[in-house]
Design a protein around this nucleic acid. Sequence first.
DNA 1: CACATCTGTGAATCCTCGG
DNA 2: ACCGAGGATTCACAGATGT
Lengths: 375, 375
Amino acid sequence: MAAIGTLARTRATTDESIALPLDTILTGDCIARMRALPDASVDMIFADPPYNLQLGGELFRPDGSHVDAVTDDWDKFDTFAAYDAFTRAWLAQAHRILKPHGTIWVIGSYHNIFRVGTAVQDLGFWILNDIVWRKANPMPNFRGTRFTNAHETLIWASKGEKAKYTFNYRSMKTLNDELQMRSDWEFPICGGPERLKKDGVKVHPTQKPEALLYRILLACTKPGDVVLDPFFGTGTTGAVARRLGRHWIGIERELGYVGAAQERIDAALPLDESALATMQSPRQQPKVAFGTLVENGYLTPGATLTDAKRRWRVSIRADGSLVSECGQTGSIHRLGAGLQNAPACNGWTFWHYEAAGGLKPIDALRQTYLLATQP
Amino acid sequence: MAAIGTLARTRATTDESIALPLDTILTGDCIARMRALPDASVDMIFADPPYNLQLGGELFRPDGSHVDAVTDDWDKFDTFAAYDAFTRAWLAQAHRILKPHGTIWVIGSYHNIFRVGTAVQDLGFWILNDIVWRKANPMPNFRGTRFTNAHETLIWASKGEKAKYTFNYRSMKTLNDELQMRSDWEFPICGGPERLKKDGVKVHPTQKPEALLYRILLACTKPGDVVLDPFFGTGTTGAVARRLGRHWIGIERELGYVGAAQERIDAALPLDESALATMQSPRQQPKVAFGTLVENGYLTPGATLTDAKRRWRVSIRADGSLVSECGQTGSIHRLGAGLQNAPACNGWTFWHYEAAGGLKPIDALRQTYLLATQP
DNA sequence: CACATCTGTGAATCCTCGG
DNA sequence: ACCGAGGATTCACAGATGT
C-alpha cells in the first residue's frame, strides 16, 4: 500500500500520465478540488454531503455565487434551488471522475436525499439500490410530534444504465450468514471509543460508523481500488479504506476535521493479505469444461447421469456431450434445459452421478478437479 | 358512518356548502377527478402512484420459472420529464384539496420516490418523516447482481412548514409496546387470503397490505376524518378506512379494479379487538449474522478461532468467512460441518475465541452485541 | 390426523464472454 | 453492433400433496 501522502500514478484506463493524489487529504472546496482530478480515474465515490444549506456557514445562489445571509432575502424556493445547484455541481464532477465501471454511494436523510436522488438520475447515473441504514440506537423524538427518525438512506448507482460494476455478491452473502444481503442494514450509531472527541466534545456532528463503510467497501470495491470521498469529515472512509487495503482520496474544507482525520487514518491498521481474502464467485475460478472431466477420467464415456430425482437418465459421450434415452443430445446445460422445457439450466448442479454415498452433482467432480490442479 | 355512495356535507373549514362524494369510488383520470374536488376539503391523502419501474426483458428464477412482473401500461412513462410532469400535476391538486391541517402520504421505490419527494418539497409540502416499509418476505435478487430490494419508502408531509397536523403519538406508542414508533416498519407483503384473486389470478399486481394502511390511518387521522386515495386500485385504503370509522374517497381509472374494490369494501367490517391485535407487527427478534460482529469490530479479520477441544484452527477473513489451515473456506456453519464431516454444525457454539478466562464460544460475543444495541 | 415434503410466487430497473 | 453458448442464480410463506 502506498504511504500516506505520496503521489502515485493513476491506473485510469483513459490517461496514464496524470497522477492521482492517492491516500491524501486535499483541503479546500470540494467542487474546485474535484475539477482538478482527471476523468475516469476513481473506482468508487462515497459522499456524505451536507444536507442543510449552511454549507460551511455560507449560502450559495442557484448559480453558485455567494450570498450574504444577513442582507439577502431567502425563501424556500431559493433555498432548494441553491441546494440543487450545489448538488448537481459536485455530482457532475463525480460522474466525470468516476471510471466507467465505478459506482457512487451517497448518504442522506429525508431533508436532502430526494433532491440528491433526483439529481443522480438526471445526471445519467443508474440507481442500483437504495439502502436503509437502520440505527440500532437512534435519538428519540423528545417532543412526541413525529415518528422516531431511526434511519438514513443511501443511494448506490453505477455510471449509466448499461455500465458494468463491481458487486461482491458472495462476500455479502457470506457476511450475512449465507443469506442474500438485503437493502436494509442495521448498525449502531457511531459512539464509544470510535467516536472522535477533543476535550470531551465530539469533533464532528455526524461521524459515520466504520461498520457502514466497511460493508460498502467490501461490497463494491476490490483491494487496490481507489475510493474518493469529497466530504471527508473526520475520515471514516479513509480509515476503513486503509484497513481494507483500498486507496483513498479525501476532500475536506474544515481544517479542524482534516487534522483529526489524518491522525485517525495514520493509526488505522491495515489488514494483512490473507485476512483480506473473501469468498469468490464461481465465475472468478478458472473455467472447467465438462469434457475436461471426461478427458481426465473423472467420468467415463458411456457412464450414466441422472437428475436429482432420477426423472431423466442420460449417457456421456466421448466429446463430453450427453445423449438422452429418447435420442436427444446436447451439452450438459442445453440438454438439461431441453428435457425440463426450461429456458436455461445449470448442468453442473442439475446432473448427478452415482457415488458411494448416493447421488452427487457433477459439480462436486469439478471442485475436486480444481483442488487437484490449482497450486 | 355514512352509507357507501351517499353524498355528505364536507366538514371543510373553508367552505361548508360543497358536497364531497364520501365513501365512493370515482372512476376516471385521477387529475381530472381531483380538479372537481373542492379546496381544503380532505384530512388526509394516501397515494400509491405508478412507480415507473422501467423493467427490461423477461426474468426467470433459478428453478426456471417465470417471474410475473409489473408490465401494465399504467406504469409506463417515456421519460423522467413525463413522469415528473404527471407527478407534479396530481401533487398540485392534492395540495389544493388538502385541509390546512391535513397530511399526505406517498409510497414508492427507488425508481420514483426521489422524484416524488423533490416534487413534494417544491410544491410547498413540509416533509415530517420518511418511513421505510421493511418487507418480511421480499422477492430475492435471482441473479445475484444487487442487494435484495427488501423495502419501499413512504413520505409523510404536512401542507406547509408551519402547518399543524394530526399525529396520534400515544396510539403509536401503545401499538409498539410502549416504545416510540420508529421510522422503519416491518410487514409481510400482501398475500394469503388478504390478496384479492379472480380465477386464481391476482387482481392487482401491487396490492398493499392492510396492516400498512392501518398504521397510517391510526397514526394520522381521527374517527370521521376523510381520506382521499387518488390511486385507489383494489381499495385497501377504503377497506381499512371503513374498518377504522374513517370516511374515504377513491379515484381509479381501471374498471377491473373498481369492481373488486367495491366488493371488498362492502365486505369490510369494523375491526374488533382480536382483529386489531393481528394487525400489529410482531416484535421482531433481532438476528445477528457472524459478519456483523466482524464489521463492528468484535472480532478482527485475521484473528484465530478454534473448536472447544482445539482440534481445528481457522482464521477469520474480511467478509466473515473462515479459512482453515488446509485452505478450506466457508461460513462458520459450513466450515464447521465440513471439517467434522457432519451434515450440519452450529458455528455459534462450535467455534471459540481466546478470551481472558480461556476459550469462549463466539455466541458470547453475539450476546454482547445484542446487549449493546438493543434498547 | 399429524407431520413432512413439494410447489408456487411476490413493485425487479437481475449475465458474460467470444466471434 | 448482434448472436449464440456457457453456466450462474432464490427467500419467506402459503397452500397443496404425500406418508
